[in-house]
Amino acid sequence: MDILITHGNMARTRSMHVRPIQLWLTGTVVLVLLMLLSGTIYHVIFLKAAREGWPVVSHLVRLVVRDEFEQRDRFMRENLDAMAQKVGEMQAKVIKLEAVGSRVSGLAGIKAEELRALDAAGSPASAPAKPAAGAAGAGGGGRGGPFVPASTPSIEQLNEVLAQLDVQTDHGSDVFTLVESRLLEKRLEMMMVPSIAPVAGGVGSGFGFRVDPFNGRAALHTGLDYPAPVGTPIRAAAAGVVRSAEPDGAYGLSLELDHGNGLVTRYAHNSRILVKPGELVRRGQDIAMVGNTGRSTGPHLHFEVLLGGVPQNPARFLARGEGLDAAEKTAAATQSRGKARRGR
């Protein structure tokens, strides 16, 4: 392709030869520059005019890009609706967790005053509920339930509800922490207090006055007798330290455990002792074997509980331990059911 360039009738004409590839590259560069220029003008001028509401330009831009704005608004509304539905589901789950927390806290022995103290410290239960716009009546009465908006909520409304959910979850976490602490306290208390029968099976002779099997006279029986074959394992009724493990007159081969605070358990008439003085034993650990040593008419375990050296009725301690075991198992089952519901 030849291009002739002249400045007048008398001027010398110049000739320029342009190859097709050069022409194609030049056209491409010009097209790219025009696209960049148009994009810059669109983003810098027209979009700014649309956002800031310039009198004439913004109206023209909105007419041109109306479909784009409508699509963007529809997308935002759909997202807000989905977020509102999710927030409502979260609120329903939080309400269920609060109900489970109330039941478990009752089983753990937490008093209502303690929960009210948590509420007074800034929980949602202590904060008065905000009445909705247009709600009839401003009197008392309980309020609650999941967040189900009548129309598409705003970002501010969703943020407010999410903030309330955050406070509610913090409060629920505090309640469950208190429940866990109380259950651990009860467990430790149960471990240090005689709470499990040292030998499986029924009691042959209880605590109190009875006819002595040797002389036939009324006498105080200071413990519980558990009839069992010789060699039957004997468990520690509570955690403690071995105080003594030796023959002790009428008690025969006897074992005593010190549980602190003046509380001692005694296991008498043993055939064999499995622990040594000063040894720390766990609750439920095998510590001896049933025998027929000392003042005994047959193989059995004589079990005593002494507080400050004074014999106590072991049945009261064991019954209390059974109650604590039942409460702990019920609380664990309730928590398991709550986790199973949350996992559905």
Results as ranks from 00 to 15, higher is better:
L107K: 06
M192H: 11
V32E: 03
D248C: 01
E156K: 09
L25W: 04
D170A: 09
E114L: 02
G284Q: 08
F69H: 13
K96W: 04
I45L: 13
P153Y: 12
A129L: 04
L34E: 07
D258H: 06
G284V: 08
D166R: 14
Q164F: 01
A245Y: 02
T6F: 12
T6R: 15
T293M: 13
E156C: 00
G223Q: 14
Q157F: 00
A245L: 04
V148P: 00
L36A: 12
K130Q: 11
D225W: 08
W24I: 09
A333P: 00
L178Q: 00
R77G: 00
P153K: 06
R14Q: 15
N270F: 04
R19V: 12
T293A: 10
V104R: 00
N313E: 14
K96E: 05
L60N: 12
G137S: 08
L318A: 04
L224Y: 12
G106V: 08
S15Q: 15
L162T: 14
S254N: 10
G208Y: 10
V32M: 10
P227N: 03
Q168Y: 09
A197K: 10
A218C: 02
G291V: 05
A11K: 04
R243S: 14
A331C: 06
H7E: 09
G201M: 10
K86A: 10
D2C: 01
F214D: 07
P314F: 15
R74D: 15
E156L: 04
A163Y: 04
R243M: 08
D73P: 08
V281E: 02
P213W: 11
H43T: 07
S105Y: 03
P146F: 12
T222V: 01
R14N: 12
T297D: 12
G137Q: 05
R344K: 07
N292E: 15
R12Q: 15
E89S: 02
L274N: 05
A135R: 12
G27H: 09
D212Y: 14
L60S: 12
L257F: 10
T28E: 01
G262D: 05
I273W: 15
P124F: 00
A239F: 01
A112N: 07
Q285Y: 04
G308A: 09
E160P: 00
G323H: 13
E52T: 07
G208Q: 07
S271C: 03
L224D: 07
G252T: 03
E78I: 07
T334C: 01
P124Q: 03
V57A: 05
R187D: 05
R337I: 01
G134A: 03
G109N: 08
P20Q: 00
I21M: 05
R344A: 03
P153F: 05
Y267R: 06
K86D: 06
L274Q: 06
H17G: 08
L307V: 13
R143N: 03
L253M: 14
G142M: 03
L306D: 03
V211E: 11
D119Q: 10
G106Y: 12
V30C: 14
M1D: 15
S205Y: 02
T152G: 01
G206F: 13
L63I: 10
G260N: 09
G144H: 10
H259D: 00
D81P: 04
L224G: 11
R66I: 02
G101D: 11
A127K: 11
R316K: 12
V148N: 13
L307D: 09
R342Q: 07
T26I: 06
F303H: 04
G298T: 12
V305G: 04
